[in-house]
Design a protein around this nucleic acid. Structure first.
Lengths: 345, 345
DNA sequence: TTGAAAGCGCTAACAT
DNA sequence: ATGTTAGCGCTTTCAA
């Protein structure tokens, strides 16, 4: 009945009873000095610092974050608000972020804020309250939510997109969209559809790029050519079907992201249409499966955005929020789903 | 130079200065009683408990987890060791896990243990020490690593695969492999290749299923038909290329997972071969892109495995590690990448 | 049933 | 440059 494997049964007590006092004693100094030495504080002789470090190492000392925090120090934890951990984009962001935070000895605490109820629950209860030194948001945040976050009274940074008032690491969505659109236009396409996602209606986003590119090319954008779908393959498939149902379907499609683009390609194949001969498709992201499916796309450095967000957090915690925002470059990746339109009209 | 937006500048102090003492005073009791009342402790009059609860509610009191922990309580945190957060499988696992932990008011702290150096660093420094009540491993753990984890002195559970000595939630790898292989055999294939991953050489795993299925079908397994690759699309593409280079290539391929299968399909298409007419391909997972690419596969409930692991953690923290392991079902999903072999030999 | 008192392990003044 | 002294906010004996 009671377990036989290595799991802990009883009230689960913490291991490593080595305290700062032990280290201090071992190094022949006071706890205060040991604290300063380890914490990188001022007024510690280099030799002393080294001695304390050695003692800590030898005793395999690990500070109690609880006690540190309680005594006024930082928690050593960073909350990350992520909508969909299972989507490649967010996983990649998380990976970059985790690496950078870990390097700074900061723990990453994951909070999922996907559906409306989850969001509401998070912002209502604010489970991160008093538990973290900073928050990284990987999702847009509205006015009300911003106010709630502000009540946490910690630094907030954004990654993977601009989020209203926070320092952020992102790509230029508009520029990325232009790269995609200009490629299609350059190939000779004029009737270009867009499969966009629900809430991405930023004024300087991908959708705006679609419109601007067409205007610049002297083509009056046709509102019928924009469909709005969920941000996944299913959405892309649906969106493409809707575009195909148009009286005059497009000769090329710009998808909000690669998953959507792949969904679009699937609908086209099912409809017996050839890609790119009959219809060109381009996405954004450079998802690993884009290479596998030979999808033309605009690549963005996702993991790097996460990493840089980690740097932003570290800077903020040092009290130097130097850069308010950074924009990373995107680049067109030519593959096999785009070509000149079939029949010149 | 100093920021102008809403970020916190100064030493980042915590919000919510309402303490237990405030609540106690408000309710006209002592801090000790308030603590017992809120914490569900014994020896508190129902009326008193209610009064304290009301006071806490009114003051919007949030207990300091730091202080609670320091005074002997649990941390309310669970560490999760994940190899590749950006891979769909792990993201999905994380999502399920997070939901269940959140419901129990447990925070999920993410530790990436991908490459060998990362693993080594984690197990050497054990950054989760003293910080969590339990650990969830989403990756195999060897003897040495197990010993290190044990030194944490907290409950450990596994998800997404059996991990030696821990309670775990997983699917039956062998059965899943058999489902895939039996499907191919049933279609009439006899020369079936396998693209497996590096370290997945569990004795009761997918590879063993490949072999067992062939033997049961009266086919002597040909070792040349097994190639070992990295667990992603690139690996699948490479593996398929190697199989095509064989003197006598297979008529069907069983891929360790869907990403690998998609990579294999890509190589086939590039080689001018038709799928499934010339060669059938089956994967495992039911990755969202499998539906989009019409890939036949064996589906496993990934998110559910994460969720169930969360339940396991909750049970462990209550001191009742009831179930030592649970096995979730898999099911064959017929799509368009498998068919009977072209030329009966 | 309730209260008083003693820490948990650490950091931050303030002294020296 | 280092040591001393107070707490941080809570839980938990132990008394009442």
């Amino acid at each position: 009945m009671t377990g036989d494997t290595g799991g802990a049964q009883a009230p689960l007590r913490s291991a490593s009873r080595v305290t700062l006092d032990d280290v201090a004693r071992h190094a022949g100094v006071s706890a205060a000095t040991a604290s300063r030495a380890l914490g990188g504080g001022p007024h510690v002789a280099a030799a002393t610092r080294e001695r304390v470090r050695a003692a800590a190492e030898e005793l395999d000392y690990v500070a109690s974050p609880e006690a540190a925090r309680l005594a006024g120090g930082p928690t050593g934890r960073v909350a990350v608000l992520v909508p969909h951990p299972s989507r490649w984009f967010f996983g990649e962001l998380l990976e970059g972020l985790e690496g950078e935070l870990r390097a700074a000895d900061l723990d990453l605490v994951l909070f999922r804020v996907g559906g409306p109820e989850e969001r509401a629950a998070f912002f209502a209860r604010l489970p991160a309250r008093r538990k973290v030194d900073a928050v990284v948001v990987l999702t847009p945040v509205d006015e009300t939510e911003h106010a709630r976050l502000a009540s946490l009274d910690v630094a907030v940074v954004a990654a993977g997109g601009r989020v209203a008032p926070y320092p952020s690491i992102a790509v230029d969505e508009h520029a990325a969209g232009r790269q995609a659109m200009d490629h299609l236009l350059h190939l000779g396409h004029r009737r270009i559809g867009m499969i966009d996602v629900e809430d991405a209606g930023r004024p300087d986003g991908r959708r705006a790029a679609w419109e601007a590119a067409l205007r610049d090319a002297g083509v009056g954008p046709d509102g019928d050519l924009v469909v709005t779908v969920s941000a996944d393959g299913e959405g892309g498939a649906d969106g493409m079907a809707r575009l195909l149902g148009l009286r005059s379907p497009p000769t090329a499609v710009f998808a909000h992201n690669d998953e959507i683009a792949l969904g679009a390609v699937r609908t086209l194949r099912r409809a017996g249409l050839r890609v790119p001969e009959d219809l060109s498709v381009i996405g954004i992201d450079d998802h690993p499966l884009a290479a596998l499916t030979d999808l033309t796309t605009v690549a963005q450095p996702v993991r790097e955005q996460g990493r840089r967000a980690g740097e932003l957090v570290r800077a903020a915690l040092r009290g130097e929020l130097d850069q308010q925002a950074a924009t990373l470059p995107t680049r067109l990746v030519l593959r096999g789903t785009t070509s000149p339109p079939a029949a010149p009209r």
